[in-house]
Nucleic acid binder design. Structure first.
Lengths: 248, 248
DNA sequence: CTGTGAATGTGAGGCAACTCACATCGGGTC
DNA sequence: GACCCGATGTGAGTTGCCTCACATTCACAG
């Protein structure tokens, strides 16, 4: 029901991870300003787990009893229709947390979370976490910021999907993804498959592929296996902002 | 830039509104648990204003220096593309608040807000409000809940727009709107025009009209001027959950 | 009760994106 | 290196929704 097919902390010794837990949590923007004592307490709550690609972390409709910090790998947040199509709402990478919404508002999970690659995660239980938040007032403000970030991301997605056509949506998605992993320099590699992009923008893989091919002949992007490299963000930015214009 | 073409509190006497302010704010789920002293303080911060239909409250990209409580009327939260098409992200009715996101995270407005009907509103400035929130720890938790509600609403919208076809999207939108103004009883009237619905689901008014006509012949809905009455939510619910199925 | 503008109703024709049906490529594993 | 499977590339035919171009109805102001 919770983490399926996943042995939890095979060492059996929680302290074996406590130093790495500390260093991982300390780096997270949500927790980085906590004092050592608080971080230490949080580490004791955090349970370590490893997941195989494809493992279900939670499903839409589940009660939301825990939040998750991703140590390595990526997690896919998605919803799916009865006929098998699915929409990717977000991809959560190393150093990010997710699943906080249901923990905070006690409502059921609003989407599915699955391991998109093999993953290493920390699980923090609601029963321990909520009192912890109450004891750390600054943490509530951090969560407000996090929720605002999520809301902006999701609103952007609505805006694109409703207002833009294929080239515009794809360009917007690429820009959003390059901005997420803010790396300096011109060529930004986005580690997603074309299938994944297609599920993020709500169009078919075939259509996405054809558009990307066009752009690759113009050297706006380079296509690799399991990745897209944005070579020239300029024209893509222009397309993303144009709303529903031509691509040619 | 802020409230355009709007005389602010024409009486010139803030106290003339203080009792009504109090009664309005007290009713709001965000503020209802505050003690009288705190509510009183909040009322002193709240500036009263009336807006004509179509008035701009804020625009996408503006700095977010105030939050708004709607006393009467409805406010439209929308984004628009350069070619004039627009997408409605939310409709805010009497008793609700909006514009909190930019106030909380200090980022620019992510959408436009305009008076969808003549409105009466309270404006609360960020400079006064943020210290107030910090002095009322319970209020932060309330805002976390509010943001979670917004996030669920917006995620739902993404899900619908990506996964569903016209009948499914329209059905989902109608269900969501009936649930928002939770009124007991079978026939629920939704006070929106077909144009507005079309901008919420991202399809043309013509397409929406044709679908609604089909449903009205089956007595699932009744069409009125500026409103849609849901007579039988059952089949609509089924369509909304079916994802991308037929409507017949 | 008459004019006016917003909201609604309806049809004909077009096209962007989908569906389906493949071929190809790459990176693993045995 | 032989196999396999997931990812990518590509074309031909189909369709759901859009576009455009109107008629009609309602609400309200004068």
């Amino acid at each position: 029901m919770v983490v399926t097919g996943v042995p939890q902390d095979r060492t059996g010794d929680a302290r074996a991870f406590s130093s790495s837990k500390l260093s991982v949590l300390r780096k997270h923007p949500i927790f980085c300003e906590l004092d050592s004592a608080a971080l230490d307490q949080l580490c004791r709550y955090a349970k370590h787990a490893t997941l195989k690609r494809g493992a279900t972390i939670f499903s839409k409709g589940d009660p939301g009893n825990f939040l998750i910090a991703v140590v390595s790998g990526t997690v896919k947040i998605s919803v799916s229709s009865p006929d098998g199509r699915s929409a990717i709402l977000n991809l959560i990478g190393a150093g990010e947390i997710f699943g906080e919404m249901s923990v905070l508002d006690q409502q059921p999970r609003s989407a599915d979370a699955t391991a998109n690659t093999n993953c290493e995660i920390f699980i923090i239980d609601r029963r321990e976490f909520i009192p912890f938040v109450r004891s750390q007032p600054a943490l509530a403000m951090k969560f407000i910021e996090l929720l605002c970030t999520r809301l902006r991301w999701t609103s952007d997605q609505v805006e694109q999907v409703i207002l833009q056509n294929l080239p515009g949506r794809l360009a917007s998605a690429l820009i959003r993804l390059t901005e997420k992993h803010k790396v300096a320099g011109g060529g930004r590699t986005i580690a997603v498959t074309q299938q994944e992009i297609s599920e993020m923008v709500g169009m078919t893989r075939e259509s996405i592929n054809k558009q990307l091919r066009v752009w690759s002949t113009r050297s706006w992007v380079r296509l690799e296996h399991g990745a897209i490299v944005v070579l020239d963000a300029g024209p893509l930015q222009a397309l993303a902002e144009a709303g529903c214009e031509e691509d040619d």
